[in-house]
Structure formats: structure tokens, C-alpha cells
Design a protein around this nucleic acid. Structure first.
Length: 749
DNA sequence: CACATCTATCTTTTT
DNA sequence: GATAGATGTG
């Protein structure tokens, strides 16, 4: 687990310890260590409940305690509880904490993400909608491939209509539960007409491929419940208590799903904070939480306003920023932790200096105040910003981890392996077929693939059927027919084993017999070796699932189906652990729900944060909420930094400090600047003169810095000695020279 | 058909 | 400064 809102540990005494203890006593115990509003929420009886939970106010605690309380008072049995989160990590966290309270009975509960819950429901009901139960879940890149193929088929120019934009349009429609027919009716602009065309064909092809994208999971689950009373009633009866975390991030489809699930009994508890609504760009509707009492008139509303995490200084700073928003309820977050260190604001020359300042400060905090690296996090607006930070931390020899960067399950070789397995389960899966039919090279190129695909589309046959009768495909050359048939035979043998064999075994056999591993091994490169290792890791994941299954006994899905579903909804960060003493780097979006002693928010420049594109789309309030989220992650120390100049895709851009920085009251902050003329704007700060950042010698060099010498060329600093002497090793001749930093004709790169 | 080279475009972000 | 798509070459 990462550091997730720990508050205080969930009373271990209440755990499985006393299964025979009378329910009433257990219920009382659950209420003991809660504050008044928390207790009120946990004890809430029947009907809708909205818990407005400010940052750090113990919302997960309320959710977990309420679940335990429902069990203890007999209001629900474990199997009747559906607890929904947005991320797998949050789900795992909640499950763990509930289990700590109620013991193993927690395992019968559905504690999962919206998408996992929908996928699981659809395994039972998808057949009514024309899918088969082995449907494949397409991730972003898979669905984009499918979309591009549809556009090509419709002869739509991807230059004029960027596939991503089209997909965003379609995704928006789906999240509003607007189907293709309705969308075609509502078309207005040429762009929307084009999108409507693609939407229609995409839907058709996805159904034919027996595949669903992330949006489809939600939409189809809603469809199944809306269209079939039996389905609706079954799930309503199953889940007598529905609980939702991060309600401010729900979109319309999710809202409708919750409405359908709870409209019989009305037992819907939602927890959220409109000030932390940061997924509007993904069609989340902040309106859902703002209008909850209107949508569910009988609702009780509880406000959690005591913060157990941060100093008053940090809370005040966060409040000052978010108060400027109009889309919010008035509220006042408070804490018993008075005072606290001022927020440190630092202006730096460029992103390199910014990164060095952050690294230096982390080093200093460690040395002077014993701050541990695992208690430090650095947040940035866009992933691209992590690069310079990483480079710098490496040079400072400060160990770190990046959350949410390059993802294991998105690596080409892993996706290939998964595509092989997916095709075994779902013979209609065109995208997976296209991915692996010629990987490794089998002499089935683009032309042949196109012929296979269009034959499948015109006949309506599963792509795998078509491959099995390659000789019937018009225009396919003799060599191609032979290659396709060979491939088909190999895979058919594997398919025969797919029903029963353990997944790990099946995966290994697939990689071997398809020739995939062989091809990789033949490459004899370091990269290929790495890929083989990744595949071994994937086999390891499968083996773990196989083991878990043995202990759990029978279930309605095959091992392979379960494996595929799990990893298709799994992201890298779910697997990361609070490793040995690492600084944590992540985007502000990924920071939600976490907390750290010391937080750096870098890249606080207008245009970067708030992001220009967000501003263009009228998203200033959401950006401000993102800032609020970032600030409220800090327990004790908060730094915000910006660079006057930053390279964005190669070009240097000059920037002003973020407007959010200006919104911080001067008495809460302390400003630093490495700028020569800093005094001019420091005057604004009112908190007295800003401390200039000591620029040190004219050219401050550290070990690891890249330098350029007028005559020796590129070099790297390998040592720094007193009196301004630096040791530089030059790349040109490999020589190492001592130079006077202030006089030698060198500059930093 | 496979591979190399060139180019344009891009970067906001849970599932 | 990467990556996907387009173009060119064997």
C-alpha cells in the first residue's frame, strides 16, 4: 500500500477477534472512536445519505465503519454490500480496512471499481445484449485502433478529423447515455456528423468483435438494467446497501447506474467533496454531488469538516485558493494542529534549477531535520515534467519512484501476450488478432490482414473463423493462405487447452508454440532480454492467480477469463508498494487520496498549471480544485515552485507564476527567488523581504552536471573542490581536468 | 513484404 | 524528444 489516508488505524480489537460478541456491543464499539458527524454518518438508517467529506476528514474511515456497522446491526449481510471506488488501489485499501474490522466475511462483499463491478455484472447479463460472456475489454489503445479502422473504412481523413477527438466526442456521448441513434439525430456541426458516422460503425464493429471499451462497461450495464426488469430486480435484491466513494467524480452513466441499483430500497450512501472534483474532462459531473439532495429528496446530509491531517497554515492556504470557485458549497475545514511552517514559494530560472532546488531541499531536510525520503512527494501537472526531476534525483543519488508513468500492462510485449490469450477466449477479437497475426513475422502483411478483416466484416464471421478458412478469402495470395493456416493450426491446439489448463501454463505454452519467445530470443539484444523478463513477470502474475483460485474453489468463469478481466482493468500503480525509502513522484491527479509529510508542487506556472488547454476549455475551477488537492496532501511542509523559463517539446517558453500562487495570502507564505531582479515582485508578498536563493559562485556546479568547454567540448563534472575548483571529465578524449569554475570558459548545458 | 528513414504532432488526467 | 504515420528501398 502507498501512504493512503491512514488517520488512525481501524481499531484492531474490533477485528475478527470477537465473532461471538453480540452485534449490539460490536456496533457500539465501532462508534466509539469517531467524532460526532462521523458517528452520525455511520449510524444513519435507511435511505440516501450524502457525506460531504473535506480533505483529510476521515471519509474512508466513515465508509469502512459504516460497512462494519451495517453488518453488526444486521442491516445487511456481507453479500448484500456493494462498495464502489474509482481506482483498484482505493478498492484494495477499502477491502483491507473492512477486513480488519469484520474479518474474513468481508470477502463476500463487492468492494471494487465501477468498471470492475460492471464487468462482473455483465459477465452474467451481456448475452442479452448480443455479446457473449467471454467478451474482451479494450483499453484506450485497443479501442483507438478499432476506431481508426472504422474511420479508414468510412474513408474519413484522420488529418481533418483526429481519431482522438472523434473518440472524445463518442466517449462524451456514451457517458451521457446517448446511443448512436439518438446521437445521429442530434448532430449539428460537420464534425459531429462525422463523429456520429464513426460512432455507429464503431459500435457495430465492437459488438462483432465481442469487445467493450471502458465506457461500454458502464453503458451496457445500465442498458441491461434498463431493458430487462429481471436483471434490474436481481441486482437490486442482491445489493441492499450501495456505498460510493469519490462521488464528485461520477459521470452521468455512473449516476444512472446508482439510481437503478438503489431505487428499490433507496439505501445509497455517497461520500465526496466537490472541491476535489478533478475529472470533469473525463465527463465527471460535479453537479451530481452538488444536486444530490435534489436528486434524492429524502437524503440526509452530513458534513465532515475536521481535518486530521494538515497544519492550519496548509489548510488556510488550500482554502484561500479553492474559495474563489463558484461551483461549491460553503464550508470551513478546521484542524487542531495550529500554526505550522509557512508555505515555501520558490521562483527558479528554469526547470533544471527547479529540479536542483527540490533535490537540494530534500537533501537538506533529510540532513537537518531527519525527514525521511518516503515522507516526501513531488507533484506535477503533466507526466512530461517528471523527466528532468528524475535526471536530477539520479545525480543527487536520491532514490525515487514514479507512480503512473510507463505502465507494465501497456508494454508492447505484454500486450502481445495478452492479445494471444484474448484471442483464445474471444475468436471475434479483431484488434487482438491484428496485433499478433504477424508478430512474430509470419509473412502476413498489411495487405493480407486487410483482406481477412474485410472478409470478416462483410460475412459477419468471427475473424478467427475467417482465418480458419483462409482459402475462401477473396484476393488472398497462396503464400498468405498457407501462412494463415499454419498460424490457425498452432493456435487451435492451444485453444483446446484453454478451458482447463492453469493460466500460467497456458501462457507459457502460447508464447513458446507461437514462436513469439523464440523470435525475441533470436534478437539477442538487451531490449529483447528485458522483454523476455517482462513476459516472465506476466507468467508470474498468472501463476499467482492460479494459486488463489485453488484456494477459492469453484467459480463461474474460467481461469483464463478471470485473468484477462483482471489485468484489463488493472493499472501499474495498483501494484506499487511503499518501498524502502523512496521519494515519490506523480501527477497531481494521481495524488488524490494520498498524504505526505512534505509535498512539493512543481511547475506552478500559468499555462502549465493551470494548464493552458484546460483554461481554453473553461476549466479554471477544475484546475483550482486540482491545486487544492495538491496542497491538502501535505501534512507538515508544503513547497510550491515555478520556473521563469521551461522547455516544452524542445522550445523554451517564458512563463509567469501560476495565478494560484498569487491567491495564497502573503502571511502564510515565504518567498525565495533565484532571480536577479526578484525584489520587484517580492514587494507584493508583504511577508517581509524574500530570501534570495544563494546563487553561490557565479557558476554553481555539482557533481553530475553536464558542461560544455570552449575548447574541450562536452564534459561532466566528476568532482567539486574548495576555492571554486571543479573536476571535469571530457567526453572528447576521456581526459579529466581541474578547472577554475569562475574563470574557465565553461557553461552548463 | 519487411525494414529504414523522414515527418508532423503532440501532452492533462483515475477506468 | 517521442512516437505514430507516411514514404522510400531492397
Amino acid at each position: 500500500m502507498l501512504q493512503t489516508e491512514p488517520e488512525t488505524p481501524d481499531a484492531p480489537g474490533a477485528a475478527a477477534g470477537a465473532p461471538t460478541e453480540p452485534g449490539a456491543d460490536r456496533a457500539e464499539r465501532l462508534l466509539a472512536d469517531l467524532n460526532d458527524p462521523q458517528r452520525q454518518a455511520v449510524r444513519h438508517g435507511e435511505g440516501p445519505l450524502l457525506v460531504l467529506a473535506g480533505a483529510g476528514s476521515g471519509k474512508t474511515r466513515v465508509l469502512t465503519h459504516r460497512i462494519a456497522y451495517l453488518l453488526a446491526t444486521g442491516a445487511a449481510r456481507p453479500g448484500e454490500i456493494l462498495a464502489i471506488t474509482f481506482t483498484n488501489k482505493a478498492a484494495a485499501e477499502m477491502r483491507g480496512r473492512v477486513e480488519a474490522l469484520v474479518g474474513r466475511s468481508a470477502r463476500a462483499m463487492w468492494v471494487m471499481t465501477f468498471h470492475s463491478a460492471c464487468a462482473r455484472m455483465l459477465r452474467a447479463d451481456a448475452e442479452r445484449l448480443g455479446y457473449s460472456r467471454g467478451f474482451t475489454i479494450y483499453d484506450e489503445s485497443d479501442s483507438l485502433r478499432m476506431l481508426k479502422r472504422c474511420m479508414a473504412e468510412l474513408e474519413i481523413d484522420p488529418k481533418r478529423y483526429p481519431p482522438r477527438a472523434i473518440r472524445a466526442q463518442i466517449s462524451g456521448a456514451k457517458n451521457q447515455l446517448v446511443d448512436t441513434a439518438a446521437y445521429e439525430q442530434a448532430q449539428s456541426s460537420v464534425f459531429e456528423q462525422t463523429a456520429a458516422q464513426v460512432y455507429g460503425l464503431y459500435g457495430k464493429r465492437m459488438l462483432a468483435a465481442n469487445a467493450m471499451d471502458f465506457d461500454d462497461l458502464l453503458v451496457r450495464a445500465v442498458n441491461a438494467m434498463e431493458l430487462f426488469e429481471e436483471v434490474r430486480e436481481r441486482w437490486r435484491r442482491t445489493f441492499r446497501q450501495v456505498l460510493v466513494d469519490e462521488y464528485q467524480d461520477t459521470n452521468h452513466a455512473q449516476y444512472r447506474l446508482l439510481q437503478l441499483l438503489s431505487s428499490g430500497h433507496g439505501n445509497l450512501m455517497v461520500v465526496g467533496d466537490e472541491d476535489q472534483s478533478i475529472y470533469g474532462f473525463r465527463h465527471a459531473e460535479i453537479r451530481n454531488i452538488l444536486d444530490f439532495e435534489h436528486d434524492f429528496p429524502a437524503a440526509e446530509v452530513v458534513k465532515l469538516e475536521q481535518n486530521y491531517r494538515s497544519t492550519q497554515t496548509i489548510l488556510s492556504a488550500a482554502g484561500a485558493v479553492v474559495e474563489r470557485n463558484r461551483q461549491r458549497r460553503p464550508k470551513r475545514l478546521w484542524t487542531e494542529i495550529a500554526g505550522g511552517e509557512p508555505v515555501q514559494l520558490s521562483e527558479l530560472t528554469d526547470e533544471h534549477e527547479e529540479a536542483r532546488w527540490v533535490a537540494g531541499e530534500i537533501e537538506r531536510l533529510g540532513a537537518e531535520q531527519g525527514v525521511r525520503r518516503e515522507d516526501v512527494a513531488v507533484f506535477y501537472r503533466t507526466n512530461a515534467m517528471s523527466r528532468v526531476l528524475e535526471d536530477t534525483l539520479v545525480r543527487f543519488e536520491l532514490p525515487y519512484q514514479v507512480i503512473g508513468g510507463a505502465k507494465f500492462y501497456e508494454r508492447a510485449e505484454v500486450k502481445d501476450a495478452v492479445a494471444y490469450l484474448s484471442l483464445l477466449v474471444n475468436p471475434s477479437d479483431q484488434v487482438s488478432f491484428a496485433r499478433i497475426v504477424n508478430s512474430p513475422r509470419r509473412g502476413i502483411g498489411d495487405t493480407s490482414q486487410g483482406r481477412l478483416a474485410s472478409h470478416a466484416n462483410t460475412t459477419g464471421l468471427p475473424i478467427w473463423e475467417v482465418a480458419g478458412r483462409a482459402e475462401e478469402v477473396p484476393g488472398l495470395g497462396a503464400a498468405a493462405v498457407k501462412a494463415v493456416c499454419r498460424f490457425h493450426e498452432t493456435m487451435e491446439e492451444l485453444r483446446a487447452r484453454a478451458e482447463s489448463a492453469p493460466v500460467a501454463e497456458l501462457l507459457e505454452a502460447t508464447l513458446r508454440e507461437s514462436g513469439y519467445l523464440e523470435a525475441l530470443e533470436a534478437e539477442r539484444t538487451v531490449e529483447a532480454e528485458g522483454r523476455v523478463e517482462n513476459l516472465e513477470e506476466l507468467v508470474g502474475v498468472a501463476a499467482e492467480l492460479d494459486r488463489n483460485r485453488e484456494t477459492e474453489g469453484e467459480s463461474e468463469t474460467t481461469p483464463l477469463e478471470e485473468f484477462l478481466q483482471q489485468i484489463s482493468l488493472y493499472t501499474e500503480q495498483d501494484g506499487l508498494r511503499p518501498d524502502e525509502s523512496l521519494i515519490t513522484l506523480m501527477t497531481l491527479h494521481n495524488a488524490k487520496g494520498l498524504e505526505y509529510d512534505t509535498v512539493f508542487v512543481v511547475g506552478c506556472e500559468d499555462g502549465a498549471f493551470p494548464h493552458l488547454r484546460a483554461l481554453e476549455e473553461g476549466g479554471e475551477e477544475e484546475e483550482r480544485r486540482l491545486c487544492y488537492v495538491g496542497i491538502t496532501r501535505a501534512r507538515r511542509r508544503l513547497y510550491m515552485t515555478w520556473a521563469r523559463e521551461r522547455r516544452l517539446f524542445g522550445r523554451a517558453e517564458r512563463n509567469l507564476p501560476s495565478r494560484f500562487v498569487d491567491e495564497l495570502p502573503a502571511e502564510l507564505t515565504e518567498r525565495h527567488s533565484s532571480a536577479p531582479g526578484a525584489a520587484s515582485w517580492d514587494a507584493r508578498s508583504g511577508a517581509g523581504a524574500a530570501t534570495p536563493i544563494d546563487p553561490g559562485p557565479a557558476l554553481e556546479l555539482r557533481i553530475g552536471d553536464d558542461v560544455v568547454h570552449a575548447s574541450f567540448g562536452d564534459g561532466v563534472v566528476t568532482g567539486v573542490e574548495p576555492e571554486g575548483v571543479v573536476v571535469v571529465r571530457f567526453a572528447g578524449d576521456g581526459s579529466e581536468r581541474k578547472l577554475m569554475a569562475d574563470y574557465a570558459p565553461i557553461r552548463k548545458r
